[in-house]
Write a protein that binds this DNA or RNA. Structure first.
Lengths: 363, 363
DNA sequence: CCAGGGAGTGGTATCGTTTCCATGACTGCC
DNA sequence: GGCAGTCATGGAAACGATACCACTCCCTGG
């Protein structure tokens, strides 16, 4: 980068980017040679190599991916379709997946659906137009006929994350939602609670439905009656739900929430009405969150191995990508496998446990 | 979508995607006509239009962006380069920017740097290779000579977010960090605190340095001595910092933290040592967070208009994109403007305020 | 009745890169 | 001392979509 170079760069500024042939002309070589230099510099004499590299630097040349892709190359781009970037669960997923993508030399394009199946299909189309090499999807609706069909016709590998695509051969990496809720319910029952209210949040999602199953079956197995409340969507509705149960004749002695935000809404509402936790009512949440161990009382939760879910999904995708490219034996046995990861109950104070370790164990 | 169509789609599965000319052949028309259909269907007779559309559906044709881009079109892709997706501040930014991008028919590619200037340059290169139409960057280092130079030679619009690029003509949308910290400091002084300890977190970032300035100047203006601690990076170091100040002869009566995570670490550490807030020491944080109003005591914070920052940055970018495309008068007066947004102090209990409104005001 | 024009359509060069093939110029070996 | 075999190199045909231009109808106004 000598002065004359940066000067030429300044001059070129805001004009069309330089092309490979311009580099070739400047270096006094053929386009083929430049191409070879860009792609590793094999079979090029040292002097030529240096001359070309100088020309590339002088012009600030950057290869045009569009042209490369057009020649049938992989785009080195994978798509991630999630409900929301702002959701902590999915932003942690995105972070982990991006790490894997980068390690594989690929770019990650994240698009969001807000759990709208239409937006989901749109996003798939956009990513197909951009010729993503593969897709990772957290389906808005696991049973969507539309999604199943669209994904079925896709010519690229797809991996589902957090929520499988029912009746399809799409591999999925999910948490064991059923067991997660079952463990939580068992834990509460073990503490002696009998009237356990379950706040589900949105009950249309696959993950939530699985958890509801886990809760209900466990309750029934113990001869207890399941108590479901699907109305809590935000703080307001949580307040309303808590208020109404406080005035009940025979109020619940424990609350199980099935979703991170629901836990927080419920906790805030309980605080608002100064309900003693776990004295009057125990609280057990789903998904760990920062401060869960700091608030008073600290909140017990079911923790999902988010980073691992994301990483395994990404690795599954790149496995397919690699095997597709290298061997012809695409779609190997790991193909339609569904990987299910176990969750872990993190006992804190709100369920009645007095934790043995110092409570605050932040990173 | 009749059965034969989906059957043909199944058969085609996993082969190369259909091209425009295949569609043309199948519909018995020229490529030009198909192209016209794809781009709005003007100047095409209704019958032809329908025939082509049928062929497109039957083949599951999706236009190849790479080829379009190659013809000099915009890629309808913008890049966002941020330190981390998992950081709540930036994930909220990403969400807002994606909304604007989508409204403008563009795709957002998010890449992360972990505040590493090298990764930043790499990301810029990758996005240039993919021919992004524009870039939004939260620079790892506002003064990076390298970044300034690279950005200077970019042929596409760039907008800086949260942190400007010093000595460059890149427009920036930032919060008034200086005032934010100044207001916070004034507020604490107004409560009567005199020994105010400032926990900075990483002190190399532009935003933090500005806030440090705001804090120091305000302290000095009041004839007080600034007390900086730049050592708190995680919970461990926060614990250490709190522990050491507890054993000090003349400990601080208030703590100002300059960063969301630092606030939480400090709060956790104070809880750990059972320090009364605001009794023994007041706490005022930077960046609002969920649960800030729920924890006991609720934590007062300086709140940044994150969504607005992100939205304005995105809009600034698309303004440039549009004016560049439509009029030749690119780079209009709004050009090198820096938009600075004011922050807001949210008084809660931890600073000694007893809030007038019910504390819990979640969405 | 004819010039002019617009609507519908197709042929083809083009974008920037890779890749196949061809071409010299060496080397080394029988 | 020729001949196969490298090595370094360049020419040119793709890849898929767009856009300019040209062409054919057919309609309208003078």
């Amino acid at each position: 980068m000598d002065p004359s170079d940066s000067l030429s760069a300044m001059t070129r500024r805001k004009s069309t980017p330089p092309t490979l042939s311009e580099v070739a002309r400047r270096a006094g070589v053929g386009t083929t040679t430049v191409s070879r230099v860009i792609n590793g510099g094999h079979r090029v004499s040292p002097e030529t190599l240096q001359r070309v590299q100088r020309a590339i630097e002088a012009l600030g040349y950057v290869p045009n991916q569009a042209a490369r892709i057009l020649k049938g190359y992989r785009t080195r781009t994978v798509g991630l379709i999630i409900p929301s970037i702002a959701d902590p669960f999915f932003s942690e997923c995105a972070e982990a997946i991006q790490a894997v993508a980068r390690a594989n030399g690929s770019l990650l394009i994240v698009t969001t659906t807000n759990n709208d199946p239409r937006a989901e299909i749109d996003n798939i189309n956009v990513l197909m137009e951009h010729r993503a090499d593969g897709l990772i999807i957290a389906p808005a609706n696991s049973n969507s006929q539309m999604l199943r069909q669209v994904v079925g016709t896709l010519a690229i590998p797809v991996v589902a994350i957090d929520r499988p695509i029912a009746q399809s051969s799409v591999p999925a990496v999910v948490a064991n939602n059923y067991r997660g809720a079952a463990i939580a319910t068992e834990h509460l029952i073990g503490h002696g609670y009998r009237k356990i209210l379950c706040l589900t949040g949105e009950s249309t999602l696959y993950t939530i439905r699985e958890r509801i199953q886990g809760y209900c079956r466990t309750m029934e197995a113990m001869g207890l009656e399941p108590l479901l409340d699907t109305s809590v969507k935000d703080y307001r509705s949580a307040e309303y739900a808590i208020e109404s149960f406080l005035s009940a004749a025979n109020p619940p002695d424990a609350i199980l929430t099935l979703k991170n935000s629901t836990t927080i809404f419920a906790f805030e509402a309980l605080q608002k009405f100064k309900v003693a936790i776990p004295g009057s009512v125990a609280l057990l949440g789903y998904d760990d969150f920062e401060l869960a161990s700091t608030v008073r009382p600290s909140i017990s939760v079911v923790e999902q191995p988010i980073e691992e879910i994301a990483r395994l999904a990404a690795e599954a995708l790149f496995d397919q990508l690699l095997s597709e490219r290298e061997g012809g034996h695409s779609r190997r046995n790991a193909q339609s496998a569904q990987i299910t990861l176990e969750t872990r109950l993190v006992p804190r104070s709100s369920c009645g446990c007095s934790p043995r370790l110092p409570e605050i164990t932040s990173t």
